[in-house]
Structure formats: C-alpha cells, structure tokens
Nucleic acid binder design. Structure first.
Lengths: 315, 315
DNA sequence: CCATTTATACTCAAATTGAGCATAATTGGC
DNA sequence: GCCAATTATGCTCAATTTGAGTATAAATGG
C-alpha cells in the first residue's frame, strides 16, 4: 500500500571570483548537466550531512567545508524519470533534500567528471551587473505576457518576480522567477516533464537558460536566492574569498553573487564601520592602476556576537 | 541492504494575541505533548503540503492557511522510539520534515485532542518581555558552565547563544539555544534519548522547559527562530492579527512573538512610513485609557513589491 | 472631578545613507 | 621620462533615518 520512498541528496557547491559565481556541475551518461547527488542510505549514513560529504567526495574529489540545508522537495508533479534514480526500487518516489556548500576557491577537480560553471549560464536573466539583461524585455516579458493573458494573478506574479512595471528587481527571488518560467512552460525542464507525463510533443516554445537534469535547476535557483539573502546579514561572503583580498576584489565577488553592481565608496565605508575586515598594510600588485591594500576577514568580530553581513549599497 | 525510510510531516501551527504566542499541541497516548504530525504516504499524497493539510485537519479540525517549510531532520542520534512511528515498517528510519503554519486566531479546536499552548511553556528562557528571565542566570548559566568546563569552544558557544559576557541576546537563535541545552543534557529529551540508547538511568540532572515527544521541541524551536527572523523583513505578522487591530495590539503581538519589548514611538513612526497599515477612522473601545484608532493591513502595499516587515526598534 | 491609564503628537540631537568631487599611486604607450 | 589612462582611496555635504525624550489628548473609575 505504501509506495517506496527514496531520499536524494543534492549539493550546490559554490565558488566565486571577481568575474563570476560558479557551481560545481557533474554530467550524467548523456552529458546533461546536473548537481553532485546521491541517495541517502539510512543503513550506511548517520546524518544527511555526512552522506552528502561522502557522495560529493566520491563524485568530484571535493572536500566540503561550510554546508547548510536548503529545502526538501517532494512534489509529485516533478516526479523523476527512472533513469535518474539508478538503484532505487522501481516506482520509487523521490524526496530530494538540497544542500548549499561554500568554498574559497575553485579547487582542482580535473580528474573527475565535474566542472566549475558560471551559474548565469543556467539563469541568464539573473545577471544585472551590466544593467538589466536585454533578454528580459526582448524575450521573457513577451513570452510571459502571452502565458498570463488576462489572468490578473498571473500578471501580478510576473511583474513582482521580474520587477516589471516599476516594481523593483529583488535579487533574492531567483527561485520565484525560475518557478514562474517553469509553470509558463519556458524552462526546458517543463517541456521535458510534460512530454514525459503526457506523451505529447507539440512544437517546443522558446526556453530560457540551459536546462539541468531532474529538478536540479530548481535546487540551484533555491541556492542562489538563499545565498543572495544571507550574504547581507551573515558574513558568508568570506567563506568564498581567499585568505587575503583587496576591497575591490571583495566588492566584485559580492557583485558577481548578487548579479548587481554596488556603490563603491559606500561599500567601503560600511565595511570599514562593520569591523569585518582588517587592513594588512601590505599592497597587492594589481593589474593596472594604483596598488590596493590587502585585507583579511576578522573572524574575531563574528565571535563577539554581532555577526553582520557584508554591506550592499545599491549603485 | 537499504533500511526502510519513512517521511514524517510535522506542523508548527502558530497563533498569537497580545498576551502570548501559541502553538497547536496534540497529546499522545501517554498524554505527552507533541506537534500535529503524520506520515507522508507517497501513494496517497501528491505533495508534502497537501499531506500536511490533511493530517492537521484530521487531528485538530484545523484548516491551514499560510504554510512554509522549515527544515528536514534526518539524524541518527535522534532516532525515534518505535512507539512514535505507528504503522511504519519495523526499524524504519524517520526523516522529519517540519512546516510552519500561521493563523489569525485561536479557532475552536475543543472537539479534538489538541490545545493551544503558550510556547514559552516549552522555552521559558526565551521570553524577555519583562527583562531577561532570572532562570538564565540562576540555573541555566551555572548548569552550562558545569558542562562546558574549560573547553573554550563550548564556553564560546554558550556565551554567544545565551548572550552572556556582554554578547547581545539574539532572539532568532532559539534553535541554537535549544540544541545547546540538548547537547548539555539539560533538555528532558536528551535524558530520555540517552537512556533509550544506553539503557542507563543515572541521576536525572535538572532540565529546562517542558519536554515534547520525539524531536518535536527541536522543530518548534526552529519555527520560533524562523518566525522571529521573518517578521522583520516580510509582513507575516499580519497573518496572525485579526482583520482590524490597534497599533498597541499589533505591537504587543509582535513583542509576544519576539519575546522582546519594542520602543513604542519608534515602532509607530516606522510603521507609519512603511505604508503597511491604514487607519480606519474608527475607534476601538479599549479597556481603560484613551480609545485607540483601528487599523487594517494594506495588502496592496505588498503587491507593489517592497514587501517589508514590521519594524522592531529595540526598547 | 480628579487621579490613573492609555493613545498620540511633537522635538531634537546623533548616526547613517546616498552621491558627489578630489587626490594618490600605479602601468603602458610614445 | 612624461603623459594619459586606470584604479584606489579620501573627503565633504545634504537628506534621511534612528534613538530617545517631553508634552498633550481622551477615555475610565472611584
């Protein structure tokens, strides 16, 4: 009577530099991108976190540091193709628990079937560092409008999610935006899941961003939103930076994660007041221009209990 | 080879008035308090949320409104006594998914085996509305100190969690505080779980707050922390208030949830600027003193996209 | 009708934010 | 070797927000 259950663990492992934020991506047998993942074996694993660390280590050679749980998905509508379940019992229902891991540098993983990928490849509409991507006005907005029709609730959701009609763009809402596109049939996964369920394959509409296997892009969107929110009130940014860095490097890294430019002077001033970083006196040999001072993260400040995030003054 | 898995769903259903915050509490066969819960049956349930709504309806007669997922626990150390698993396969490992539900009033549930309980009964150290509870300095601090001994990391965790030695009390950290007490053997559940695993029953040390079945108090602590954080940046407070309310009622309700007094004038001013509420011109017939104006929540403001929380200026 | 209680209004200094302009120290042509 | 371009860093100032106090208004209950 009760159908079998399987718990899948999925890891979004994030690194970032001044250029872009990266996620660790694996490939399945068909070469489709996905997240490092595996099944949770209740007999062999004491906790989710341990199981996750073990899987990630095996699949990518990567040793996880900072880890936090994201969300547990169990929807029927997103039931997975059997191919993704490997050794699960037939017809097993998958419950997937997503985790976020942060790492200070893109460690070498060349020996494994995993690569670091700029996460905006999967979410091209999320990068507003050089202004709002034209993709939104040119393609996403018209496609969503066609989907919404005269349904007021759909129109509302669309405007709020994508910051249309004078609403502000809220970078934390990466999941809402992806789910909206999925619902509107504008994500490759939606096309795939529907044809699998209904065995119909009508004319494929235009879809946005590179799709991933299973519901992995949804988990990645959850991670992006969570990290973007958390960076503002907890010093997680320093889990992603090297030991020493210049203020510009830190700022560009944060901008890459938020997909949003920040106001330089105000960023520095607020950081100064926060006591989160400490100048080292040493200079960095930068590419062109005046050399910048090197800084380090003051872990002591966090232990004093105030635990603030990095400032994010809008530019 | 793979042990059976069961997914348990647990609901923290919260109501609040100017006196206290309440959680909906059920009782097991032995009269021990717990949260409304049930197993997720993958065959019968499409999504976690639907299953949850069904269970809660059956156990408490309660119709859930606002719902959000909290956290998924899967630790081995907190394995549950078989009694709590009811119709699960023997030796099943329980994965428990916690949900938070909010409701504007304490609806009548007298026909069911469920009651509304002031949540501070389970967490007496969390209510700082009338100053820091003396329980902390009198009993918790010495007990934790005895546990920490000279272990610097333990001393540090203790001070940060409970705001000792000049650290600020951070009301969101309800889970950290409970887990610390559990680890230190100062929660009734810890005593119970240890004796179940080790079959020893030494002298029971003093424990704090009323224990709950299974890991339900841990889930309740998660809910408290989450709600306390969210109330500051999303207008969830209005999911808990009646249609119309006075500003004082709103303030006292928020204070009850945070366990923290707020600065009256600044609370009003910030609320004013936020556009979250709108005066109705009508007066409330209060108990004693000048009558207060009635207000209502402006849902329209949220739809305009700014979606701020209620202000929480420290008193 | 007066003391008490509660609500609401007003004020003011301190701190923070937003956004500009000015100056310093490099590199890379020419 | 000098000048332009580039990047880092410093300084200023008005506008806004915060923190916290004082004053006034409108009820209730002896």
């Amino acid at each position: 009577m009760t159908a079998p259950l399987a718990v899948g663990l999925n890891a979004v492992i994030v690194a970032a530099d001044t250029e872009a934020p990266y996620a660790l991506i694996t490939q399945n047998a068909h070469g489709s991108p996905g997240l490092p993942h595996g099944r949770f074996d209740p007999a062999g694993h004491r906790t989710f976190e341990r199981a996750l660390r073990e899987w990630v280590q095996a699949q990518t050679g990567f040793e996880l540091g900072y880890v936090e749980q994201l969300y547990t998905f169990g929807d029927y509508g997103r039931e997975l193709p059997q191919a993704d379940l490997e050794d699960a019992p037939p017809n097993a229902r998958l419950v997937s628990v997503g985790y976020l891991g942060l790492t200070p540098e893109r460690t070498d993983i060349s020996a494994f079937r995993a690569v670091w990928r700029d996460w905006y490849r999967f979410f091209p509409w999320e990068d507003h560092r050089r202004g709002r991507p034209t993709l939104i006005a040119d393609a996403i907005e018209p496609a969503l409008e066609a989907w919404a029709g005269t349904d007021d609730q759909r129109i509302d959701r669309m405007r709020l999610a994508f910051g249309l009609h004078g609403r502000p763009w809220i970078e934390e809402n990466a999941l809402e935006r992806y789910e909206l596109l999925y619902e509107a049939g504008l994500a490759g996964e939606a096309v795939r899941d529907r044809s699998a369920l209904e065995s119909v394959s009508g004319p494929s509409p235009s879809v946005f961003g590179e799709p991933m296997i299973s519901d992995h892009r949804r988990i990645l969107a959850t991670a992006i939103g969570r990290l973007r929110g958390k960076i503002k009130y907890r010093p997680v940014a320093f889990e992603l930076t090297p030991e020493t860095f210049t203020l510009s490097e830190l700022q560009r890294t944060v901008e890459a994660l938020l997909g949003q430019p920040l106001h330089k002077q105000n960023f520095r001033r607020a950081l100064d007041r926060s006591d989160l970083v400490e100048g080292l006196g040493r200079q960095s040999t930068t590419t062109g221009g005046r050399p910048a001072e090197l800084f380090r993260f003051r872990r002591e400040t966090v232990r004093r209990g105030l635990a603030l995030g990095v400032p994010t003054p809008r530019a």
